[in-house]
Simulated scan of single mutants.
Amino acid sequence: MNAHIPTESKRERLFRLGYLLFGINLPEHDQANASSASNSASVLKKSLLRIFLALMFALACVYVISSFGDFVSGFIAGWNSAGNADDLKFETWRMSQQLLLSLLAVMWFLTHNFLLKRAIAQTIARHDAERERANQLEISSTLKLLKAQIEPHFLFNTLGLVQHLAEPTAPQAAALTADLIQFLRATLESLRSDTISLEDDCKTCDAYLKIMQTRLPRRLSYEISYEPHLQQFRLPSALLLTLVENAIKHGIEPAVDGGHISIVAHQIDQQIRITVIDTGLGFGEEIGHGLGLDHIRNRLALSYGDKAKLELEENEPRGVIARLVLPA
């Protein structure tokens, strides 16, 4: 799967060098700066680059100022040589070292001021875009919650009655109805909250997978495991279930012989890694680009910024590994 990376124009690269020269950090550069802060080679490389840029900037300014000074001197010399004896004569003008340094300081200040204003405007525009995206996600979540709250007690009471009537003659249908009730209750609870504990999220996935096992007899098997101390770890709701649904829809259902799904959660240093592994068909043209995965990436960005991510990779011999990497 090849992710589309937008190319940076020459103009943007030039501004990036200007930001580096004057030590202006945009929010999107903070992560790269933080990751390379402990790398001495990277720090040395950046320092040398900044010195080189400062020298190039100074040389360019000196060239522009000297060219202007030569133009003025040439103009004065031409005026004096072309005039008559009674005409006004100008004294020969040479730029002093103090004037040159003063003009250099002025150009440095004006350039820094321009780049700083542009960086502030760019940061404000980025924050406005993130705020608009957050508002859209909030509206979408509110609509989902309203839909989920339409007569839930009537639905559960009806399903409970169906389960009671089916138990004597159709125990499999009764068990399926019980799993459906558990799944719906857990889903409604997760919709009412922005976060959910890992234990409850795994129970929701367990109820969902039991229902799918009834739909896909002998074609679906699964297992769920997580470290005991992570039971109460809270994560954004519906993320894990979306990964499981994708594994069923794109991996297990299309495969003739089905497959196996593993949900594993463990902690490595200051990261919590929640992995959904399936042995389905594997990567296809649409895998990695669906609305569900885009929703997960947006939720992670809004909840954790750059500290969380969604990783996708191929499983061996077939299937997909989807991993949520969250800060502990």
Rank of each mutant, 00 (worst) to 15 (best):
Y222R: 04
Y63K: 10
F57R: 10
F22W: 04
L100D: 03
L21G: 00
R218F: 10
S67L: 04
K309D: 10
A166K: 14
R219W: 00
D294S: 12
E245Q: 14
I139K: 12
D201V: 00
D200T: 11
S193G: 06
T242N: 09
D179C: 01
F22T: 00
Q31H: 04
E285C: 01
F71D: 05
R16T: 09
D194G: 06
Q98S: 15
I181G: 04
S42K: 11
L21Y: 03
L55Q: 11
D194K: 00
V64S: 09
A175G: 02
G259A: 07
N80V: 06
E253K: 14
R16L: 05
Y304N: 04
R16S: 14
T214S: 12
E311R: 10
R133L: 14
Q172G: 04
I248M: 09
A301I: 12
P236W: 03
S197G: 02
V62I: 12
L235K: 01
L312W: 08
I224V: 10
R273N: 15
S47Y: 08
H289L: 04
D70N: 12
E253L: 11
Q172C: 07
M56D: 13
H112M: 04
W93S: 06
E151L: 10
I277V: 13
V276E: 04
L26C: 01
I211V: 09
A119Q: 02
R234C: 13
S47D: 08
D128C: 13
A207Y: 06
E138K: 15
P327E: 05
Y222A: 06
E223A: 10
I261D: 01
P152M: 07
T92P: 11
S225D: 03
I5Y: 06
Y19V: 02
Y304A: 05
R94S: 11
E199R: 11
F90A: 07
L59A: 15
E311V: 08
S67V: 03
S36M: 08
N80D: 04
L100R: 12
V276Y: 13
T275G: 09
L155C: 08
P217W: 01
N25I: 13
F109L: 08
L209C: 07
L88M: 06
T195L: 13
L53G: 00
R192A: 14
A178C: 06
L165F: 15
I268Q: 15
L110S: 05
L53D: 03
I120G: 08
M95N: 08
N84W: 09
L302D: 00
R118K: 14
A174L: 13
I181N: 12
D294P: 05
G280T: 00
K10H: 14
R13W: 10
T142Y: 10
P6W: 01
A247C: 12
G251S: 11
A328W: 10
P171Q: 07
V106R: 03
L49K: 14
S190L: 01
R118N: 13
R234Y: 05
Q267A: 07
T123L: 08
S96E: 10
Q232W: 03
S40D: 09
T158A: 11
G259L: 06
Q97R: 13
R11S: 13
D87N: 08
L104D: 06
W79M: 08
E313F: 09
A54V: 05
L180I: 07
L103E: 02
H164D: 13
M212W: 03
G319R: 02
T214N: 07
L300H: 07
V72K: 07
L240W: 08
N157S: 15
S197E: 02
D306A: 06
A166Q: 15
